[in-house]
Nucleic acid binder design. Structure first.
Lengths: 206, 206
DNA sequence: GTCTATACCGCGATAGAC
DNA sequence: GTCTATCGCGGTATAGAC
């Protein structure tokens, strides 16, 4: 029998902290989360946590950065695909919905940041997403002008879409109560995803 | 000249506290708001504030109760109107959108509570809104069955609508950045309201 | 009804031993 | 890399004077 090397599926302490921080920040928000909560979840003490990250703010920043890079990566693939018309819009919708289904905690943090106006981040969140927003608005407007999509205000349509896509996941504790069922079961997530796709399709495609 | 009675437009200290608390809780959340913040906004000291409300939680509860009663009151009027078909759906949408346009802070608190799952309230928030939700789902399903509305999953449609109606107001700091303009100017609110109405109309009415 | 003073706790952060 | 110990700050809440 060989020497006990760390098993491959054993994550590093730093990654465990990032995972636990994601969970706590998503559930209780920045101010509602203490470093004690996170450290306890990992099984270490608070000073040990601060050995890996210089401050609470820095830890939060790293959590958010991971979120944002995954989101932008998936968005990039969908946006740069060769699909046309509705197919492309559906690809973008699914890219977001699938990511959010995989990691609903991302959505809750994202929503909290939108509510707070990004005060906990050094970066300008809207600024980062603005290029995607403007490009999407241009695309929608183009398809409307060609008569492929029904006519709506492209920018307000995007905001409505943003709200529709995020809400089911971000407000899942509330949705649980409305549905009297767990919102985030695979079946319910699937049902909601297909609903959102069909709904936007029926509003846009003539 | 008569004796200096409190002028009519001078609100009581208690009401001033409720107003300031609404503002703070909406902007910074429950955990992000200190009683010092609220007291300072009113121009009194923290202990004086605790003379009017027994605790932070009780104050928050009163703020939320005021919000909820106004919302339910406006919803009741719309729901019990004699309108039929799309007209009734539009009345309900406008009842919410108009209230939220008047007091966007209500929306931000409501959203924060939905995110947190109602932990700061003694009441069951979803439980209070559930009767409206169920009744609305029945109505939509009935109109779909009659062929007045296009067919969608009624309950998921309501959640999508909830998200679309709240998001523009709740996430206004983020929307500011996307639009590169103040989301909550009267003109922009009006544009968004009309967009949401038209959008849902085009998805539902055949 | 508002004030001062204070008790008590948990927070983020630092220093230094092992 | 993790720990104990400690600091300073700000939080909620209470007691009592005016």
């Amino acid at each position: 029998m060989t020497y006990d090397a760390p098993t491959a599926n054993q994550r590093s302490t730093r990654d465990q902290i990032l995972d636990e921080a994601l969970l706590c920040f998503a559930q209780k928000g920045y101010d509602g989360t203490s470093l004690n909560d996170i450290a306890a979840g990992v099984g270490i003490r608070r000073p040990s946590l601060l050995h890996h990250f210089p401050s609470k703010e820095a830890l939060y920043g790293d959590v958010f950065e991971r979120l944002l890079s995954e989101w932008l990566e998936r968005l990039d693939i969908a946006v740069n695909s060769s699909a046309q018309g509705w197919d492309k819009a559906e690809l973008v919708l699914r890219a977001c919905l699938d990511l959010f289904a995989d990691t609903p905690d991302y959505v809750r943090i994202m929503r909290r940041e939108a509510l707070d106006g990004g005060v906990h981040l050094g970066i300008d969140l809207s600024g980062v997403l603005r290029p995607f927003f403007d490009r999407a608005a241009e695309y929608l407007q183009g398809e409307m002008n060609k008569g492929v999509f029904a006519t709506h205000d492209a920018r307000h349509l995007l905001i409505t879409g943003y709200g529709a896509v995020l809400t089911y996941f971000s407000d899942s504790p509330f949705v649980n109560g409305l549905l009297d069922d767990e919102a985030l079961t695979p079946e319910n997530i699937r049902a909601h995803t297909e609903h959102v796709i069909a709904f936007f399709r029926s509003a846009l495609v003539r």
